[in-house]
């Protein structure tokens, strides 16, 4: 795709970030802007939908269209926008609390519904905006303000959860590697169907355990492993189980018809541009059903 768009165009619509200096989320926005530019997409062709939390401000700083919903509710809104106008590129974004805590029901159903949107989760294993409580992805034993004796619960594992729920594109990235992240975003946007990119995005203020250095030491990039086949579901489960999820790259991908392909009588012309006057002309036929 020939690119005639620049990051500058996005920045023109973006607000000044209020994230803490060093926050991993800066890299996520930067990687997404570059991915969109590289795909030749202009800000008006893109909608980013968020919930609440530090990561909920993703669309304030991206500079495309945005809808900021409530805590945990980015996915229902994002899926609906794609149903309304399939010409738009729709990205939902949020954090681990938003997506795997309060919004986890929507996440599972979005995976199996398979509407063609991209879901970016900035996973920092902590609640940041509420100043440091345990999150659904916090490791067992992790000490926070709400778990002074260490988290008692087992963490959510987003990757196997997504695969088991029918997600056809499961990837994981790291804020410390913007270039790789950009490539994952591009692949996710181009994937037809629901795509998850879980991003390890360090919270430099409240999580002193999972730091940039810690991630760098512990992550393995599967995209660099020639023997890894992301279309092999059993291999995907095996690798995320064996590594405890400490991998990056495209973990699993599967081509299948998306939700809109499965709809009866589906017109490829976006719903938002359809002629609304037809039923008035069909009055006689429509009333016949009630006689």
């Amino acid at each position: 795709m020939a690119s005639t768009v620049t990051v500058k165009e996005y920045r023109a619509y973006a607000q000044q970030p209020t994230w803490c200096p060093g926050c991993g989320d800066f890299a996520v926005v930067a990687a997404m802007q570059r991915a969109l530019v590289n795909l030749g997409l202009k800000p008006h062709q893109v909608v980013a939908v968020t919930g609440i939390g530090c990561s909920g401000k993703f669309n304030y700083y991206l500079g495309a269209n945005g809808f900021n919903s409530m805590h945990g509710r980015s996915l229902p809104v994002a899926q609906a926008i794609k149903i309304a106008n399939r010409d738009l590129v729709v990205i939902a974004a949020g954090g681990d609390g938003d997506g795997y805590g309060i919004g986890v029901g929507h996440f599972i159903h979005a995976c199996r519904r398979n509407i063609d949107i991209t879901y970016v989760v900035m996973d920092n294993h902590i609640y940041g905006l509420t100043t440091g409580q345990t999150s659904p992805t916090s490791e067992k034993g992790f000490k926070t303000k709400t778990t002074p004796y260490g988290a008692a619960e087992y963490p959510i594992r987003p990757l196997p959860l997504a695969i088991a729920s029918g997600c056809g594109f499961v990837a994981q990235g790291f804020s410390g590697d913007v270039k790789h992240l950009q490539s994952l975003f591009e692949a996710a946007i181009q994937h037809k169907g629901f795509a998850l990119v879980n991003v390890f995005s360090p919270c430099v203020t409240f999580n002193k355990e999972q730091t940039y250095d810690w991630w760098r030491e512990n992550l393995v990039n599967l995209d660099e492993r020639e023997d890894y086949d992301p279309t092999d579901k059993a291999a995907a489960y095996k690798v995320v189980t064996e590594t405890n999820g400490l991998v990056t790259g495209i973990i699993y991908r599967e081509e299948r018809p998306d939700y809109q392909d499965e709809l009866p009588n589906y017109d490829p012309k976006p719903l938002v541009y359809q002629d609304l006057s037809k039923p008035v002309k069909d009055r006689e036929k429509l009333l016949q059903a009630f006689m």
Binding site: V47, P76, A78, I83, N85, K269, L271, V272
Partner: peptide, 27 residues
């Protein structure tokens, strides 16, 4: 018949948010 969609949501929170999302996008 008119290109429209019936979305059975996972719960009523999602249902209402979906209706909001469509309206935001102009449908």
């Amino acid at each position: 018949e008119y290109g429209g969609v019936v979305l059975q949501a996972e719960d009523e929170m999602a249902a209402c948010q979906m209706a909001v999302g469509c309206n935001y996008a102009g449908v």
